[in-house]
């Protein structure tokens, strides 16, 4: 049950990451003399909306989305492997669990770094005759939730440590000597001597 919930969380993390990668990370709105223009940035592109309502999109030069999408792909791959771990060799099953931690960690690192960028870009400042408002977008929040869910998933698919327990054989077998047959030298010497 725990493993299934963990796999579901890993997959949910991947889906949320994919959804967040196409949504705005932050949005800057300029209100100037009654006109409103907006500038939105995603992991792959930037979008500018003029006061007339015309929107222009430009591909981003810096593709911050690459490590994020690779992490999402690894989350899906490891989720599938963990789900099938009962039919896989022990080393592959362990590699899947370790891989899920690596995928979640990769996502956390990438989202955190993107978040540092968004943090530095979101500030409100007053302009002459207007205002510049910058806020984190839904994409950033989706990525943060995705990272949290993925970390929870990778922890849930880990095996709980179990203390090894050894069951000794039944006491019936403990009487068998190393030679396989009972040998009592002192007794056999007396019995084998001719009377």
């Amino acid at each position: 049950m725990r493993r299934v919930v963990g796999v579901t969380a890993l997959l949910a993390g991947a889906v949320l990451t994919a959804a967040g990668s196409s949504r705005p990370l932050y949005e800057t709105t300029r209100i100037d003399s009654g006109y409103r223009s907006a500038y939105r940035v995603t992991l792959w592109a930037s979008e500018y909306t003029t006061p007339d309502g015309v929107t222009a999109t430009e591909d981003a030069k810096v593709l911050f989305g690459v490590p994020v999408v690779v992490a999402a792909a690894l989350l899906v791959l490891t989720a599938v492997l963990v789900l099938a771990s009962a039919r896989l060799p022990a080393r592959v099953a362990l590699a899947a669990r370790v891989g899920s931690v690596a995928a979640a960690g990769l996502l956390v690192g990438a989202v955190w770094s993107v978040g540092q960028n968004v943090l530095a870009s979101t500030e409100t400042s007053d302009l002459v005759g207007g205002k510049l408002v910058a806020t984190a977008g839904s994409g950033m929040w989706l990525l943060v939730v995705a990272a949290v869910v993925a970390v929870a998933g990778c922890l849930l698919v880990q095996r709980r440590p179990e203390e090894p327990v050894y069951q000794l054989p039944d006491d019936d077998d403990t009487d068998t000597p190393p030679m396989g047959i009972p040998i009592h030298p002192s007794v056999s010497t007396e019995e084998s001597s001719p009377g």
Partner: peptide, 16 residues
């Protein structure tokens, strides 16, 4: 493995 992956994710993003 988690801390190594966090470092990799951060450095990869800066690398882009």
């Amino acid at each position: 493995i988690g801390s190594a992956a966090v470092l990799t994710g951060s450095v990869w993003t800066v690398g882009q």
